[in-house]
């Protein structure tokens, strides 16, 4: 009886020591899950999810305080990816969150007064210009987050959908029927 207790005790202590050692030796800095989630998010930094950027949203998802269907720029594709990553069920967008076509901000240069408010709002530094100078959006860097639209005092920023070109055109999923028309005489 005593020997059994001792043996069990010894095993418990050894395993405990191993686990304790492993916890220190293989300690992971930060939360890797947050980075993984962040890598899936589209990085528009638009805040449409209700968090002040993609990283905070990723943190909230990792903590389990946010749903995975709050990111309209990521589209349904993005929700699928998050669901895959987290091993949860796909969840469609709820009521108000609807994905929009991809677009970029465009400053109407004739109306721009050079107030720099949009420059301060842009999360990815995609607007160039200086005080009292006309501003312009670097379209290639613009994530289409729309954060620059509300601060503009003269409403000179509009969102222009990205047009289809031969460069971004995609082959469609082949759609064919097993020709019901041919089954009818």
């Amino acid at each position: 009886m005593l020997s059994a207790l001792l043996a069990m005790g010894a095993i418990a202590i050894t395993l405990g020591a191993v686990l304790g050692f492993a916890a220190i030796r293989f300690r992971v800095e930060g939360n890797p899950l947050v980075d993984k989630i962040d890598a899936v998010l589209p990085q528009t930094q638009c805040g449409q999810c209700g968090y002040p950027g993609c990283k905070p949203y990723a943190t909230a998802i990792a903590e389990g305080t946010a749903d995975i269907n709050l990111c309209p720029p990521g589209g349904e594709e993005g929700i699928h990816k998050l669901a895959d990553l987290l091993g949860t069920e796909f969840k469609p967008f709820g009521g108000s969150t609807v994905p929009k076509p991809k677009s970029v901000a465009l400053i109407d240069e004739s109306t721009c007064i050079g107030c720099t408010l949009c420059i301060q709002a842009c999360p990815v530094d995609a607007i160039v210009g200086a005080a009292k100078q006309m501003h312009t959006v670097i379209a290639a860097e613009c994530t289409g987050c729309e954060l620059c639209v509300p601060p503009c005092p003269v409403d000179c920023i509009s969102m222009e959908p990205i047009a289809d070109t031969t460069g971004n055109w995609k082959w469609q999923y082949p759609v064919y029927a097993i020709m019901p028309s041919q089954t009818a005489p």
Partner: peptide, 19 residues
């Protein structure tokens, strides 16, 4: 298209973090 999107997202993340 996915790769292009990923590349754009990575660039945006970098710019955002820099900012």
């Amino acid at each position: 298209a996915q790769q292009a999107g990923q590349k754009a997202a990575d660039a945006a993340r970098e710019r955002h973090e820099f900012r």
